[in-house]
C-alpha cells in the first residue's frame, strides 16, 4: 500500500529530474525482462543512500554493498582490471558511496547512475594520477536532505530508462551493452558483430537518439 502511494506521489512530484522530464508512463511498454530486479529497486537504492547520508545507517550500507560491490567488480574486470585490483576498486567504490552519500542528489541522477559514475571515476583515477576535475562533479557538492518524493522520482526515472532500453531493437540494445561492458573498442565490437565500424557507430548514435526521444530529453 505504501509503495503504491509513493508511486502516485512520484507522478505529482514538482521536482522531476531533468533527464526524464516530460516522459509519460508507458503502461504497454515491454515489461522489465529481468525477474530478479524488482522495478522498485531504484527507489530502494536511493532510500538506502539517503539512510546512509542522514543516519550513517550501516545496515543500509551493507545492503548497498551486497548489491553493488559484486557488479562494480564485474564492471572493473570488463574494463581490464586484474581480479585483485577489481576487488579493491569495488571496495573503494562502496567506501566512496559511504563517504559521499551526503552529495547524492536524486534530482540529478538515479542511485545506479551515481554509483556507476563513482566506479568509473575510480577506474579513470587508477589509469592516471591526475584526473581532470569535471566541471560539474556531482560527487563533490553536498546536496542537502532528499525529500521522499525526490527519492521515489529518481527510482521512477531509472525504471523508465530501463523500460526505454527494453523497447530498443535487439541490435541497438546489443551495441549499447557492448559499448559499456564488453571491454573492447568499437573496432573490435564491429569485428565481433561482423559489421563495418561506421555501422557500429551510427547504430550507437541512433540508439542513444531513440532513448532521448523516448525520454523526451530533446533539449
Amino acid at each position: 500500500m505504501n509503495a503504491i502511494a509513493c508511486d502516485i506521489d512520484a507522478w505529482n512530484a514538482p521536482h522531476r529530474p531533468r533527464l526524464l522530464r516530460g516522459v509519460r508512463p508507458q503502461p504497454r511498454a515491454k515489461v522489465n525482462p529481468r525477474k530478479d530486479i524488482a522495478p522498485a529497486s531504484g527507489v530502494r537504492h536511493a532510500e538506502l543512500i539517503a539512510a546512509v547520508s542522514e543516519r550513517a545507517d550501516r545496515d543500509a550500507f551493507a545492503e548497498l554493498f551486497e548489491h553493488f560491490a559484486p557488479r562494480v567488480k564485474s564492471y572493473m574486470l570488463r574494463l581490464g582490471a586484474a581480479p585483485e585490483a577489481a576487488e579493491e576498486l569495488a571496495q573503494e567504490a562502496l567506501l566512496t558511496v559511504w563517504r559521499k552519500a551526503a552529495s547524492f542528489d536524486p534530482s540529478r541522477a538515479a542511485a545506479s547512475t551515481w554509483i556507476f559514475t563513482i566506479a568509473r571515476n575510480l577506474h579513470i583515477d587508477a589509469l592516471r594520477r591526475t584526473r581532470p576535475p569535471p566541471a560539474e562533479d556531482p560527487a563533490d557538492t553536498p546536496a542537502g536532505p532528499a525529500t521522499p518524493d525526490a527519492l521515489v522520482a529518481a527510482g521512477q526515472d531509472e525504471a523508465r530508462l530501463r523500460q526505454a532500453i527494453a523497447t530498443l531493437s535487439h541490435e541497438q540494445a546489443e551495441v549499447i551493452r557492448l559499448s559499456f561492458y564488453a571491454d573492447q573498442p568499437h573496432a573490435e565490437i564491429a569485428v565481433a558483430l561482423g559489421l563495418p565500424l561506421g555501422t557500429v557507430k551510427s547504430r550507437l548514435r541512433l540508439a542513444m537518439g531513440r532513448l532521448r526521444t523516448l525520454l523526451g530529453d530533446q533539449a
Partner: peptide, 14 residues
Amino acid sequence: EAVGGVLLGDLEPT
C-alpha cells in the same frame, strides 16, 4: 551515464 547505471544492475555479479 544513466544507461551505464541501468546496465550495471544487469551485469552478472562477480
